[in-house]
């Protein structure tokens, strides 16, 4: 058992090293760097979602809400008070966290579960989108451009996508580490028990409300930080950042990856998002949405054929080898 765990750590470090070395293979090609950054970004979102969705079993569809809050907080701090995004993105994380607490507290207090939790979290994204659309001082219907400079460390503007990729990679590793820490502590066992059978877990003395709220708040914090970075990468904020589509996609990637397995959602993201983006680039032109049709079919097939997630494929393979 001990040896096995050390092996996993070595494997994780080796994979992280490969991920860090990957951009060196195509430094000159900005498209590939965008692709890598996108995959890393989705990796953070799905891995963070795994804490509330995978472990605690709450089908959360509000990633877009926290992403947008993080983005708008970062942008507003920079535009109004010239506060650097390095601070702004953590402020974004805190705002997302506070908001998650305000929303999660009554939701869990009134024992809203399953489909109703999923729907109210999805509604939340749309509500925030409208609120920011109408809130003229901060949002509004137009994009808000961040200060354009070709290079500014203070404003987090770079000429290449390379620095963004590395920042995103650091965030991804931090997210995975946090998920791992939670998974191996008491909170993780509580969450897994809740995800398995909420009533049974409560009877055994698990504090359902508190544990779920902790999971939700941690998840919101991580997604909020990602939102701040998201705004810097794109150079603007817009109400379309509060996207129900992205929220659902994050959840579905988490599900087909394997609920509660640390590397599951990341695995699904790396395979599926890369595949989707390559398809998009390859098909392009006239058949603009064909890639989405194919992507959707693949998602449905995985969910039908591998209801335990892609990670279960790896598990089966490891078992066979033993």
């Amino acid at each position: 058992m001990r040896r096995n765990s050390r092996g996993s750590w070595l494997l994780a470090i080796a994979l992280a090293a490969v991920a860090a070395a990957l951009p060196l293979a195509f430094l000159r090609n900005q498209y590939n760097l965008i692709l890598l950054t996108t995959v890393a970004l989705y990796g953070v979102l799905t891995s963070a979602w795994n804490i509330i969705g995978g472990m605690a079993g709450q089908l959360d569809l509000s990633a877009g809400a926290y992403l947008g809050l993080g983005a708008y907080t970062t942008a507003t701090l920079l535009l109004r008070w010239n506060i650097t995004p390095w601070v702004g993105m953590f402020a974004g994380g805190v705002v997302a966290m506070g908001f998650a607490f305000l929303v999660g507290f009554p939701l869990f207090r009134f024992r809203i579960r399953e489909v109703w939790y999923a729907l109210s979290s999805s509604a939340l994204v749309v509500v925030l989108q409208v609120v920011f659309l109408l809130w003229k001082q901060v949002g509004g219907p137009m994009e808000r451009l961040l200060p354009s400079a070709s290079f500014s460390l203070y404003n987090l503007r770079f000429q290449s996508y390379l620095p963004y990729y590395y920042i995103m990679l650091v965030l991804l590793l931090a997210t995975l580490f946090i998920a791992y820490r939670i998974r191996t502590r008491r909170l993780g066992y509580y969450l897994l028990a809740l995800g398995d059978n909420e009533d049974a877990a409560e009877v055994l003395g698990v504090d359902a409300r508190g544990s779920k709220l902790k999971a939700l708040v941690i998840y919101a914090f991580l997604v909020g930080i990602t939102g701040g970075l998201y705004a810097c990468i794109y150079g603007f904020v817009h109400t379309s950042f509060f996207s129900p589509t992205i929220s659902m996609e994050v959840a579905i990637l988490g599900i087909v990856g394997g609920l509660g397995i640390i590397y599951g959602p990341l695995l699904a993201t790396v395979i599926l998002v890369t595949g989707r983006e390559l398809l998009r680039a390859g098909l392009g032109g006239r058949l603009q949405s064909l890639y989405l049709v194919i992507y959707a079919v693949v998602l449905i097939l995985i969910a039908l054929l591998r209801p335990r997630g892609l990670a279960s494929l790896l598990g089966a393979w490891r078992k066979e080898r033993r």
Partner: peptide, 15 residues
């Protein structure tokens, strides 16, 4: 499980 149903119907929706 309920999550698998959601994954499938959200996939259908995307489709």
């Amino acid at each position: 499980r309920f999550v698998v149903q959601v994954a499938v119907t959200v996939g259908l929706m995307t489709f």
